[in-house]
Amino acid sequence: MKFSVFTASTPDWSPEEAATKLAGQGWDGIEWRVTDQAETAEPGFWAGNRATWPMTGLEESIPEIARITAESGLEFSGLGGYARCDNHDDVERVLAATAALGAKQVRVNVLPLGNSTMGGGEPSGLSYPELFQATREHYEWVAARAAHHGVKALVELHHGTVTASASSARRLLEGLDPQHVGVIHDLGNLLIEGWESPLPALQLLGPYLAHVHVKNTRWVRTESRDESGAAVWANEWAPLTEGQGSVLAYFRALADVGYDSWVTAEDFSTEVPLEERTASNLAYLRNAAALAGFAVTAPA
């Protein structure tokens, strides 16, 4: 098992700083965030993130991405792309960039639900069956282009999309070549929407289980009540050791299905300063993996 960090979760660091600091802490790899974003006065996870490579001009950035990654000694666990499956031009570009970098796999986003504002857009109002069918048609094209480039396109299990659960992702990809399409199973996202017991969910994905993201969340009761007088609950990101998901149980499920590839941390909690957070996360993940029976390389 190898460990990497998705740079959406390292907004304070420039690419050079992120690679240098993560390599110094002993991480095996890095998953670069690739998207155009709003600029802000202070860096944030989703806007003003300094460890993000812009989609605009991505091709010109490839040599620098390759240099920084190689000089740090880190590997690519993949690319954290934001191109949506219905934007064929951008999908083609991120697939080509993934191939050029030797990063092997890249997230290609599915369509959001009809009542979702994911990505900052207005809700489409389309029904789930309509959106699911459209996503399937686009992903058939994505699979063919991924095969052309010799890489793998990844569907993330994510709340607010047509693939919030392992079951929906397996149904979406059924019949497509698992050499070129796969699923990112994400513990934290599933606690928000799409939760299925990890072991059977991982078993269900079978050959489509391609990648793992680990973060954690918890549900908290707000002071509000809805119109009926019922309590209102909201989710918030939590440190890996403080959320509702058991990372140890998750790793044991991964061990049971024989998954022994990349685990990418994307901790969006802010209770601990960033550098301390990434270092302690690596120590915790290594310990949990060892307890689950994985062979874990000791830090240099």
Rank of each mutant, 00 (worst) to 15 (best):
K2S: 00
S9G: 10
T10I: 11
D12S: 07
W13P: 09
A18R: 13
T20F: 15
K21D: 15
A23I: 10
D28A: 15
D28P: 14
I30F: 13
I30N: 15
R33D: 13
V34K: 04
A38K: 10
P43G: 12
P43M: 14
G44A: 08
G44P: 12
F45P: 10
F45E: 07
N49W: 11
R50F: 11
W53P: 04
E59K: 06
I68K: 06
T69C: 11
A70C: 01
S72T: 08
F76I: 09
S77P: 09
S77I: 06
S77F: 08
L79T: 03
G80Q: 09
G80H: 08
A83C: 12
N87V: 05
R93N: 09
A99E: 13
A99N: 07
A100V: 02
L101I: 06
L101E: 12
A103Q: 03
V108H: 06
V110S: 14
T117N: 14
M118S: 00
G120V: 03
G121S: 12
E122M: 02
P123I: 11
S124M: 04
G125A: 00
G125H: 03
S127N: 05
L131W: 13
F132W: 15
Q133Y: 13
Y139K: 05
Y139T: 04
A143S: 09
A144V: 00
A147T: 02
L157R: 06
T161F: 03
V162E: 12
A166R: 08
S167K: 09
S168Y: 02
E174T: 05
G175M: 10
G175E: 14
D177M: 10
D177P: 11
D177R: 12
H180K: 04
N189R: 01
N189M: 06
N189L: 03
L190R: 02
L190G: 01
L191S: 00
L199S: 05
Q203E: 15
Q203K: 14
L204S: 04
L204P: 04
L205N: 01
L205D: 00
L205W: 01
V212D: 13
K215I: 03
R221T: 15
E223Q: 13
A231Q: 11
V232P: 11
A234N: 13
A234P: 06
N235C: 12
N235F: 11
W237L: 14
P239I: 04
L240W: 00
T241Q: 09
E242V: 01
E242H: 07
S246W: 00
S246A: 01
S246L: 02
V247C: 01
L248K: 01
F251R: 00
V257L: 01
G258F: 01
S261G: 00
T264G: 15
T264V: 15
S269N: 14
T270R: 09
E275Q: 14
T278L: 12
L282S: 12
Y284A: 05
R286C: 06
A289N: 09
L291H: 03
L291M: 07
L291Y: 02
G293V: 09
P299Q: 14
